[in-house]
Structures are given as structure tokens and as C-alpha cells.
Design a protein around this nucleic acid. Structure first.
Lengths: 351, 351
DNA sequence: AGAAAAACTTGGAGCGCTCCAAAGATTGCC
DNA sequence: GGCAATCTTTGGAGCGCTCCAAGTTTTTCT
């Protein structure tokens, strides 16, 4: 653990009596160095404890980083990438592509203030950006001229993007519940800023719920349409917004709206929270209340009861995103299909 | 998307009529540039589409990467870090520390051939290395003079390391089952190389099971001792080795050793696999067979039946590892306690 | 043996940036 | 107004490496 400076290519060259260039070749293109010279250089390197070219120099020269960067969306943290069922599966997909390409996966979260500067400074060859419609972020990524892919966000035709048909999915969920006879519903939406749950009472003329991200608005629109088909005005439906992992979501819903018979959510994570709270209170799901998730995470298939949800291939989406980014090529916009998976958390409405 | 070269500090300086140094200051130490000059420089930067210093140059100069590297152990992939219940919680702990320190988390997996060269080339300020006793890897990390922490591995006093008391945990598991009256047991161990399950028959004089990593051997030793206390020779106990996620583990056990009444495993992941197979076959757990996991992942508390397991604070371990790495300081070796959490997957032995 | 061909080495020219000592400009004060 | 003190700006010196054109040595062939 001496704090002596690390030896450099030049030091090794000096000891072995060859030039920097030759030492560099020994490590990077050994075939074009004569065997005896190569051995001499390797011996010198070993003697100095030189273990190969410093990556900083290599990278400065203009090389690739061989890494792809991932920034969690909105207020999510890096920890959430291992904690949120959705992000976890998404990351699994991305990492499958990384494993194949033998690329490093860098999880980056700038200081809240400046995600743009985090993008500017990241040592990666490209980005996958979560649902963060933030135009500034996109601009920043474009400035660096690095390839990137935007997930679940409005993005122009000059940008790679992948999203699911959120409106269609929400529509299916609402129709499903309407067909089961539910008339008193609640929506559990996502609060995109930190803070406690926000409750939007029905028939509150001042309520403004369209402040979420594109992602959320699109789903709300699907719910609205599905409800409208059944003759229900979304203005009559209570909407609660909670941050994604918020454990109190279920409590707020059951406390404030005890006569609701069905809850539509924006994510499986939220739906599972509701299920947990129902168990705690002895509320029968789906006997008393039906719950629909969103995303189709594998967690949702392991709950009791198993979750009815609007599913899509999250792993496949992540993998595709990483592959698109790694492949380069002209920008593409992809919309992935969703599917209503009816399992055991929904049932005909009680009276 | 023009392919024109990116502008540099010097280009901006030229346009603004100031030196490189001043432009650098505008971006890094704005307080020591006069306001009007700063504005001129910022205008020039905007005009050229210069978005701040290229990280490569910065880093070459000797700066930090502000990133910590994590390499999955053995044959695990980056994808496993999002897939294995154990690794996932470990990574969660590590990422909590990264979020706090606003550091990037780089998941690195060199080509199988050369994890050492991946270490050599990683753009990080330090490493957390999983249970990979690989002395070569440690040497390689030491060569780079970067701080690092080794998890679950034999490591000398000059290296940071954190491990759990695996022997003690295995001992508790074995005693627990012995107290429940189990006499016909099987061990589900970990195969550290790719490939199908390996079955070690009881009383096979040629069998050699001590080829695993230190981690595995230590646990086996605990099992051995616990069994010995109950008068059972480990040589009489079948041992099956499977790769961590191998779904066939349960099938092999139930097919080959139908009269076993208890199964001790090396991880919750494996134990859950066994539970799944039992459901598939209609085998009653714990009525017919008791199963003990290892690790104490949160998955284990959500299975049906809930898993009895040797638990430790995985998240805390990861967080501590990252903090140790980030803090620097003299090397420490930490052994974390384990605890037998008795839940519903173990019961008195049937006759 | 001698010339041409092949194999191998060399060292200069950056890559883009930060630091720093020193030069230059400005301000404050009597 | 003059001088010291303070504030700004400058440009050289690397950081460690890779590429490449040019030079040198070795091999091959007649």
C-alpha cells in the first residue's frame, strides 16, 4: 500500500529499454511485438507492478467507455431500481443486453438539482432514460451526441423511444371493472413529487389532476374513456395520488372511500400495497373490493390473491431499449402492446 | 445530429476571446471570473453548443470518477443482480449508500476470461467484490490501489471484508431440524460453475464435496457439525449441487431422494425453487418435507408457506460495504451475526 | 551476397482538461 | 495621484494513453 505514484507506460518502457509505443502494443496488440521484446516488457511491467494501461488515458484518446448509463425517472433513486418491481424487471431486461454485449451498466443519479449535469459528466457511451418527459434532459443528452432511448415519454421522431399503449391498457382495465358491474370506483394515481398522498375528492370543481407526467395522463385518459362508456363521469371518481412505494396508499383509500368496490391503479407496486393493507384490515379481495394493477410484474402473479393487471413485457422492453441504444441507427419510436391479465383480484361487484 | 466534432474549451475560449483557463473557471469555479466575462463565455458556449467540460479530460487530469464498481460473484451475471433475491437486497443496500453519496453505481462483468482486466479498466473509484475468493482478483484490485471490500470470502487482515457467520448459521439450521426429529435429510448446495445439477449419493466413498468456495464449505461444515451432534454422519446425507437459479433443483431432490423428510439449502432462492416444485407435485410442506433456506431475503417471507431460514441483514451488509469503501480508512474485517428465523416451512418429522 | 520484402520499433502529435505561478487589471486609501 | 492590496486572467505543464508515419532491423529470395 505504498503511496508511490502508479507506474506508467513510459516507466515500463524505460526499464525495459523500449519506447512507450512498444509497451502499449504489448498490452493492446501483442501480435505485432517480437516475442523476446514482449517478454522483456512483461518482466519490466511485473517488476514495477504495472498492471496494464490506465483506463483514463485510453478513454481520453477517444475510446469508448463500453458502458451504458441508466437514470431512474423522476424522483426515483438508484435504490428504487432494486426495489420497485417494475424498475427491477426493466433493469433486468437492460442488464440482459449488457451481459450479451459485455458492457458495463452504470446507474446514475445526479444531485436532484441537476440531472442534466449528471448526463453531461457520465462516463458512458449512451443512455436509457426513464419516463421523464423533461425536455431539458433530452436536450442535454442530445448535446453530448450520445445515443439514447427514452422510455414511456412523449418524444419526437428524432429520438429513440419505447412506450406502451397506456391509454389502451387503462381502457381495458376500466371496461373490465365496468363489465363486472362496478359503479363506485377509485383511482390510485402516481404522485411524481415527494410528499404524502394527495386526495382528489369527487365532484370537486377545483381539482386538477392532469399535472402528472405524460405517462400518467395517458392512463387517466384511458380510465376516463372506459368509465364514460359505462356512463360514469371521471369527475365523480375519487383519485388518490401517492408516491410509488408509499405504504399508506391502501389506508387512505379504505379510510376515505369505504364504499368503493373497485380500485384501479397505475402500477402493480401500488396495487400490492393496497392488497397488503386489505389483509391488515381483513377486507376481502376481491369479495369486497376489486383491485387492478398496472405493468404486469412478476410480483403481481405471486400475491394472494393473484393480481389482475394490465400487463406488458417489461423485461423485453428493457432489453430492446438497451439493444436499440447499443446498435445505433436511425431513431425509432416503438409502441408496445399491453394485455389485460385477469387473475383473482377482481370479481363481480358486491351490491 | 451533425457529425461535426464536439467543441472544446479552447474553441469556446477562442470565440469568447478568453483563454482556456478562464473558460474552465466559468464552468468549475465561476466565482472567480468577472461577471461580464462569464456572461460572454456562457454566450459563446451556448452558440457553439458547448455543454460543459468533457468528462474524459477532467478524469485524465487525475480526478475521481465518483462511481463505485460492483462485480457479481463467480458465474453470476449482471442480470442476476436484479434477479437473485439475495443479490438484489445486497445491491439495494449498496445503492442506498450510493444515493446518499450521490455516487454512480457501475455494474461490471468482464468477459468470463478476464475479470481481472475488467477490474483494471473499470472507471470507478473503488470496488465491492462478491464472494469470489479468487486471489487473483484481489491482487488485481490491490494493484490499482483502489479501495475495495470483499464480501463473504476469506480475506487477509490487509483487506476490507464483510462476511456472515455461515458456519454458525448452518449449525443452527441443522440443530433445528434435528430437534424436530428429522433423521433423513438432504443438502442442497451451490454449484459454482455452469451446468446441470450434480448429485452426490450418500456413502459414496469417492465423493468430494469440498470443492466449492469458502462460503459454501463453511456452511457445509456447519451442517456437518449440527448433524454430527444428532448422531448423523454427513457422509450418509445426499448432497445436490445446483447453480443458483436452477429450476430443476426441487425435481432432482424429490425424484432421487423421495424418503427424505428435510432439506437444508444454501440460499433462499434455492429453497423457493424447492417450494415451487413441491406445489407442482402436491407435496405438503412442511407436512411431508421441511425446508430451510439461507440468507433471510424478503422473498422468503412471502412464500407459502413462509420460509424458515438462516437470516442476516443483507441490506445492511451492502450499505456497510459501500460505506466502508467510500470512507477509506484502515482495512477492517467484519463478521455479521446470523439468526435462525423459524417460520412455517419446517415442522416435526413424519415417520 | 545483395536487394527487396516483411517485420518490428520509435517518438511526435495530439486527446480535453485542470492546476498553478505569474502577469495584468482594478480598487481602495491616504 | 500614487502605491499597495486585491481581483482576474493567462498560458505553460502536464495527466497517461493511442495512433501513425517514418525509420530500423530481420527475413526472404534470387
Amino acid at each position: 500500500m505504498s503511496s508511490k505514484k502508479m507506474p506508467t507506460l513510459a516507466d515500463v518502457g524505460r526499464l525495459a529499454g523500449v519506447s512507450r509505443g512498444t509497451v502499449s502494443n504489448v498490452f493492446n496488440h501483442p501480435h505485432l511485438v517480437r516475442a523476446d521484446v514482449r517478454e522483456r516488457v512483461e518482466a519490466a511491467a511485473k517488476e514495477l507492478g504495472y498492471d496494464g494501461p490506465d483506463p483514463r488515458g485510453r478513454v481520453l484518446h477517444g475510446g469508448k467507455f463500453n458502458a451504458i448509463g441508466c437514470m431512474p425517472p423522476g424522483d426515483y433513486t438508484i435504490a428504487d431500481m432494486f426495489r420497485s418491481p417494475y424498475l427491477r424487471e426493466l433493469m433486468l431486461g437492460i442488464s440482459l443486453a449488457c451481459d450479451e454485449a459485455e458492457a458495463t451498466l452504470s446507474l446514475i443519479k445526479g444531485s436532484n438539482a441537476s440531472r442534466t449535469s449528471a448526463i453531461r459528466e457520465a462516463l458512458v457511451d449512451g443512455f436509457i432514460l426513464g419516463h421523464s418527459a423533461d425536455i431539458e434532459l433530452i436536450t442535454s443528452a442530445q448535446r453530448r451526441r450520445l445515443p439514447f432511448v427514452i422510455l414511456e415519454s412523449e418524444a419526437g421522431p428524432d429520438v429513440n423511444s419505447i412506450r406502451i399503449d397506456g391509454r389502451g391498457g387503462a381502457l381495458m382495465a376500466a371496461r373490465h371493472l365496468a363489465e363486472l358491474g362496478h359503479r363506485r370506483l377509485a383511482i390510485l394515481s402516481v404522485r411524481r413529487t415527494a410528499g404524502p398522498p394527495i386526495v382528489h375528492m369527487p365532484n370537486d370543481p377545483t381539482r386538477s389532476i392532469a399535472e402528472g407526467s405524460h405517462l400518467d395522463n395517458e392512463r387517466l385518459e384511458g380510465f376516463r374513456q372506459g368509465l364514460a362508456e359505462a356512463g360514469i363521469a371521471i369527475a365523480d371518481v375519487p383519485i388518490v395520488e401517492t408516491t410509488p412505494g408509499e405504504p399508506a396508499a391502501g389506508a387512505v383509500l379504505f379510510d376515505r372511500f369505504p364504499d368503493v368496490t373497485a380500485i384501479m391503479t397505475m402500477s402493480d407496486w401500488q396495487a400490492i400495497t393496497v392488497l397488503d393493507e386489505a389483509v391488515r384490515r381483513g377486507i376481502d379481495i376481491p369479495g369486497a373490493v376489486s383491485v387492478v394493477g398496472f405493468d404486469g410484474t412478476s410480483e403481481g402473479s405471486r400475491t394472494t390473491p393473484q393480481l389482475t393487471t394490465v400487463a406488458h413485457d417489461i423485461v423485453g422492453k428493457g432489453k430492446l431499449a438497451a439493444e436499440m441504444m447499443l446498435a445505433g441507427g436511425p431513431p425509432r419510436q416503438i409502441v408496445m402492446p399491453v394485455e389485460l391479465v385477469v387473475r383473482a383480484s377482481t370479481a363481480p361487484a358486491r351490491l
